[in-house]
């Protein structure tokens, strides 16, 4: 008894938290057996087990691989472009007050606006193929990266910069020796936020004017009342964003143990 109690107190957070999620899943599974659902409702209802079955079927029948492939390409290409553009721009705006002043209005405006409103425009410009999605992923992910890199550069210790300068370093060397290593924790935070925005872009981009991709699969399944297929898609997106954000979070906490606790942001 004593040992059991010790076991519990040591792991209380994970037991309670994991238990709650398990309980919800079990309740969801048992719901149609415990209650008689109204006729119209069962049309929109599915259980976790049916979702797993649907997932297995889709996989065996080779129906999901292509959607998954297209979505990953969009995600990776958009996020990659965002990194290529966002990081250098963040470094430059952080180092040069003049360029910062000139770019700042655009960053503020675009960051406050949900970039998804440009989706119809991008579909008009780039068609319903893969490119309109890559661009929407890019424009969603680039701002968190840019802004956090900028904050990181701004927070670099002035003294360190001056020391390196006094020893005759040029701007490039200052960047390499002081600025970049110091802004890495911020960049990682930006990356985590960017991953979330990128997945959002993939999902929503594929809802409208697409013929492939997991978002497209969800949208068509919903209009055909195949609720289990909808949840297969949703579960894949959930799983991917959880794994990716948690991985980045891990890196983050390794890099910045000294930082005070902040509210979660995704």
């Amino acid at each position: 008894m004593k040992r059991l109690q010790n076991f519990y107190t040591e792991r209380e957070p994970s037991i309670l938290g994991g238990g709650f999620i398990l309980l919800l899943i079990v309740l969801w599974e048992l719901m149609p057996r415990l209650l008689t659902l109204p006729q119209g409702f069962s049309l929109f209802f599915t259980t976790p087990w049916k979702v797993i079955e649907a997932c297995y079927e889709l996989f065996v029948e080779n129906k999901i691989q292509e959607h998954f492939y297209v979505s990953s390409i969009e995600f990776l290409a958009g996020l990659g472009l965002a990194i290529i553009v966002g990081l250098p721009l963040g470094l430059i705006t952080g180092r040069s007050p003049n360029i910062d002043a000139m770019v700042d209005p655009f960053v503020t405006i675009f960051n406050a606006t949900p970039r998804l409103i440009f989706l119809p425009l991008f579909i008009l410009w780039f068609g319903i193929g893969i490119w309109s999605k890559i661009i929407i992923v890019f424009i969603g992910a680039v701002f968190p990266l840019l802004i956090n890199t900028y904050e990181g550069v701004k927070n670099v210790d002035r003294v360190l910069v001056n020391v390196v300068r006094s020893f005759g370093a040029n701007e490039w060397q200052v960047m390499k020796i002081v600025v970049l290593p110091n802004s890495v924790p911020y960049i990682v935070v930006g990356l985590r936020l960017a991953i979330g925005r990128a997945i959002l872009g993939v999902v929503v981009g594929e809802f409208f004017g697409a013929s492939k991709g997991l978002g497209f699969m969800i949208a068509t399944a919903a209009t055909n009342y195949k609720v289990d297929v909808v949840f297969v898609g949703v579960a894949i997106f959930m799983g991917l964003s959880l794994v990716l954000t948690m991985a980045v979070k891990k890196i983050e906490s390794n890099l910045s143990r000294w930082r005070p606790e902040e509210a979660k942001t995704f």
């Binding site: 919903a222 909808v230 997106f237």
Partner: peptide, 16 residues
Amino acid sequence: PFFTAMYASPLVALAP
């Protein structure tokens, strides 16, 4: 943990 999972996942996927 439950809310964290919900917060981190793209709930927009449920929109349709």
